[in-house]
Amino acid sequence: MKNKTIDYILRATWQAVSRMYNEEAHKYDATMATGFALLSIDREEGTPSTALGPRMGMEATSLTRTLKSMEEKGLITRKKNPEDGRGVLIYLTDFGKEKRELSKNTVLNFNESVRKHISEEKINTFIEVAEIINELIQNKNIFNQQENSTNDIAKIQNH
């Protein structure tokens, strides 16, 4: 991937990972979004529906469709939040907990496979670079960087 832009590499890699997870999920009549939702819902306490979108980085409309599909398949149930009558808590059913384990094992399998082929040092560098990129974006330092890029990047790297 030499001579490719950083955003191209990130996008191409994420698309490959996404495609791989969706192919695996398809074997179980599911999607990557379903698997990710299963992993994002607290096994015992349930999770407020309003917390799931931000946790998963998903838009409300996409999340609504995913949750509706999961409810139709018997993976989740929705119950009123006893602490906030306006809110809804999402709970995993026993079937949902079973499928959650499958999703968890799939993710762990992926991580284990990658770690077999990449040194711990390179993995740590990758994580550090990804964290810096995320911080630059969150702090809106990408397109405003002409003013203070050197100082901001130095601050981030010293974390």
Rank of each mutant, 00 (worst) to 15 (best):
K2E: 14
K2Y: 11
N3I: 03
K4F: 09
T5R: 00
D7K: 07
Y8Q: 12
I9H: 00
I9K: 05
L10S: 05
W14M: 15
V17N: 05
V17I: 15
R19Q: 14
N22P: 09
A25C: 03
D29G: 11
A30L: 13
A30H: 06
M32N: 13
M32H: 09
G35P: 04
F36E: 15
S40N: 07
I41P: 05
D42Q: 02
R43D: 07
P48Q: 02
T50N: 05
L52S: 04
E59Q: 09
M70G: 07
K73A: 03
K73R: 08
G74N: 04
K80G: 12
K80L: 07
E83K: 14
E83C: 00
E83V: 06
D84V: 04
D84G: 02
G87F: 01
V88W: 00
T93G: 01
F95P: 05
E98F: 03
E101I: 03
V107L: 15
N109P: 00
N111I: 14
E112T: 15
I118K: 02
E121K: 14
N124F: 04
I127Q: 11
I127Y: 07
V129G: 10
I132M: 11
I132N: 08
E135F: 01
L136P: 04
I137E: 12
Q138A: 15
K140N: 15
N144F: 08
Q146N: 10
Q146L: 12
E147R: 14
N148E: 07
A154L: 15
N158A: 13
